[in-house]
Structures are given as C-alpha cells and as structure tokens.
C-alpha cells in the first residue's frame, strides 16, 4: 500500500491537490450530498428547537418529505444528536440531545 509517511507536508498537499483533480467527479458528488444533508439537517434541528416533534410534524415544519426526515432523524440519533422522546399517538417524538435533559430516551 502506498507509503506517504516520508513525504513532507508540502509534497502531500501537492499530491492531495492532484488527487482532488483526479477524483473531480466523486468529490463533486460527495460535496453535493454533504451540502444537501447539511442544509436539511439544519432544518430538522430548527424544527426541533422548540421541543420534541414527530416525523410528520418535522416534515410539515420543514417541507421535507417525511421519509427523508425519518432518515435524518435516524442518522442524527445514531451520531448522538437526537434522542427518542415520548410517544404521540402512533408516532414517536424526537428531541435534540441536551435540549431537554429530562426526556430520557429509554422507556422503563
């Protein structure tokens, strides 16, 4: 496997630049994905800033599709940003972690 350890920082920067050029397409694709999710996750966060909400409620507030909202909620839950809160009818509510310490994710 390629050995980059002995390269100087300058060399490496140069090589990385080269690589970015080479992988222009995938870098652009990844950047687009990142920007979209960043924007939309911000919207999800915004929708939860006033307190816990269900997926349809978040979808309503953000204008995002509800399946997409659920995907973000699952993602943000996995990476510790969101936790499950109380159930509201057939739907669970979700809350930002730290926003309400009292809403423990686990039911008894």
């Amino acid at each position: 496997m390629s050995d980059t350890e002995h390269k100087t920082d300058g060399d490496k920067k140069q090589m990385l630049k080269q690589l970015r050029k080479q992988r222009k397409e995938s870098v652009a694709r990844a950047t687009a994905i990142m920007k979209k999710s960043k924007k939309e996750m911000k919207m999800v966060r915004g929708a939860l800033s006033d307190g816990p909400a269900t997926v349809p409620q978040i979808a309503e507030a953000t204008g995002l599709f509800s399946d997409q909202v659920l995907w973000y909620v699952a993602a943000m839950k996995k990476y510790g940003e969101i936790q499950e809160a109380e159930k509201d009818g057939a739907y669970f509510q979700y809350a930002l972690v730290g926003a309400r310490e009292t809403t423990e994710p686990q039911e008894g």
């Binding site: 997926v55 509800s66 909202v69 659920l70 699952a74 499950e84 159930k87 057939a90 739907y91 669970f92």
Partner: peptide, 14 residues
Amino acid sequence: GPYNRVLRPSDGME
C-alpha cells in the same frame, strides 16, 4: 437496528 424499533420507513409511524 436503524430506529431501535419497528417503524414504517415512510414517516416513522409504528
């Protein structure tokens, strides 16, 4: 699992 429970993927309904 992804939701830690069984939810339907279109909108998170149980």
